[in-house]
């Protein structure tokens, strides 16, 4: 084999890997998943203003999220980018729910201290709004971090 053959083969390898990474980066969470998650956040937050049973709503929320995962998994064509640095690429997606939960907790504490009516409802709306508005930026940040495995 000569050098030009080797270069051509390596270029073919890079092209193939770039195609897989491009596919993984192009993938976006579907609107119904985002809407379903935001609706769950608001519904559970509103309910907590009227029924004081946090454990029940925690279970309902977790079951709702688990149900949303079923069709989500079914439509995924290529699993997100194989790499031993997966967490380094996808940590923004993990940071998002933590940040969103912080929005709820801080808003609820502030509203509770201020004696505002329906503190959980307002905090829930803020939380869902933060989730929906931050998700596109987080997905874009994750897509930028995807690289072919070396």
């Amino acid at each position: 084999m000569d050098t030009s053959d080797a270069r051509e083969a390596l270029a073919q390898i890079h092209a193939g890997q770039a195609q897989a990474v491009q596919e993984a980066a192009r993938w976006r969470w579907p609107w119904w998943y985002v809407a379903g998650t935001a609706a769950l956040m608001v519904a559970v937050s509103v309910a907590m203003d009227f029924y004081n049973d946090a454990a029940l709503f925690t279970v309902i929320y977790c079951c709702g999220v688990a149900l949303l995962q079923v069709p989500l998994a079914a439509i995924m064509r290529v699993r997100l980018h194989r790499s031993h640095l997966t967490l380094r690429a996808t940590w923004p997606l993990a940071a998002l729910p933590v940040a969103v939960a912080a929005v709820y907790v801080l808003a609820r504490l502030a509203l509770g201290a201020a004696g505002a009516p329906l503190p959980s409802t307002i905090s829930g709306v803020l939380m869902a709004g933060a989730y929906v508005s931050l998700l596109p930026a987080v997905q874009a940040a994750t897509a930028r971090r995807l690289r072919p495995e070396r």
């Binding site: 897989a20 699993r79 980018h81 194989r82």
Partner: peptide
């Protein structure tokens, strides 16, 4: 060449769908 392309594509994925 064909197998190299297939393997390179799969190397960057966990599981890839046949149609993809």
């Amino acid at each position: 060449p064909t197998r190299l392309s297939i393997v390179a594509l799969l190397a960057a994925s966990q599981w890839a769908e046949f149609t993809f």
